[in-house]
Design a protein around this nucleic acid. Structure first.
Length: 300
DNA sequence: AACTACTCCTGGAGGC
DNA sequence: TGCCTCCAGGAGTAGT
């Protein structure tokens, strides 16, 4: 379990973990009670939908679309949950056993509801699901079933890196179409590829040995192949270790992850050169100036 | 199309 | 030591 002061952004691996928790703990059960301490957490796409309308609905499934979770009920409203940066979900069984995923604050064994618990769902068998968010960024969207597909479609989510349809050839065509766009902001754009956040973009670019400001259309075929392999690789390696751990701007490496993110001044695991941090597109960006040269030519 | 800037939030860091 | 200010950051929106 993560220590209280350690941070892990709920990026795709964490969101998938939340999906599995809800699937195990709540699917097939009816909602018998809803409590919400922060109305702004909830948005309704139709004005006549309210949180109280969830009561009586049976959760039939939880789908994940990139970092969005769709809670499918047997009656309207349906719900779309996004944890943003600091959301956390806990499911507590009638006997008290709990599963928690997402942001590590509050501590996973803290008493629930916590001061930062903003939403509570009670299910018929006594299971309770809690949503915590110390910084109030998470959102729960209520909508009728007819609007779920359009809502997800409107997000314009690109392919997720493990998606088998995202072939090297397709990635090459996507990059070529983006001209001079810089790699880092491009990979953060969920309409280009979905699921990568700030941490995983830095990690993928380092693994692929590509400078964050390389132009999308300027990559050589071997570089595209490296990027294609690096994106799913960094996501896959983060899952078993529970994501990145970052505290006070410095990373605690677990099994060598992360390699560069939040490791300013520390040696690159590949070549030993101190990691550089700067701001790009408004995001803290970490890279190795030796392994990730800024020019168009990089060592293959 | 591709940028930037702003919004939402608050715990923690850094300055004095 | 105790204030005070500033900042990160996913996604949405607006403006250029």
């Amino acid at each position: 379990m993560l220590a209280l002061e350690e941070y892990g952004m709920p990026e795709l691996p964490e969101v998938e973990t939340v999906r599995r928790i809800l699937d195990r703990a709540a699917v097939g059960k009816r909602v018998v009670g809803v409590r919400c301490g922060r109305e702004r957490l909830v948005e309704a796409l139709e004005t006549d939908l309210t949180l109280d309308d969830l009561v009586g609905g049976r959760l039939d499934g939880v789908e994940r679309h990139a970092k969005y979770l769709v809670l499918r009920f047997d009656r309207d409203p349906q719900a779309v949950l996004h944890l943003r940066m600091t959301g956390q979900v806990a499911a507590v069984a009638p006997g008290g056993a709990r599963e928690v995923a997402g942001h590590p604050v509050p501590a996973y064994d803290a008493p629930l509801p916590a001061p930062t618990t903003h939403l509570t769902l009670d299910f018929a068998d006594g299971t309770t699901v809690y949503l915590q968010d110390p910084r109030h960024f998470a959102r729960l969207t209520l909508l009728p079933a007819t609007l779920v597909e359009p809502y997800i479609r409107e997000r314009n989510l690109g392919p997720e890196p493990p998606d088998p349809s995202l072939t090297v050839e397709r990635l090459a065509a996507m990059l070529a179409a983006r001209g001079r766009a810089k790699l880092k902001p491009l990979l953060l754009d969920q309409s280009f590829v979905a699921g990568l956040g700030n941490i995983y973009v830095d990690e993928a670019l380092h693994l692929a040995r590509l400078h964050p400001e390389r132009a999308a259309a300027g990559l050589a075929p071997p570089e595209i192949a490296r990027l294609h392999g690096a994106m799913p690789a960094v996501l896959a390696e983060a899952i078993p270790i529970g994501g990145a751990r970052i505290h006070h701007g410095k990373a605690t490496q677990v099994a060598g992850f992360p390699r560069v993110h939040a490791r300013r001044g520390e040696p690159c695991p590949t070549c030993g050169t101190p990691i550089v941090k700067y701001t790009l597109a408004g995001r803290g960006t970490y890279f190795c100036p030796q392994c990730q040269p800024p020019g168009g030519k990089s060592q293959v």
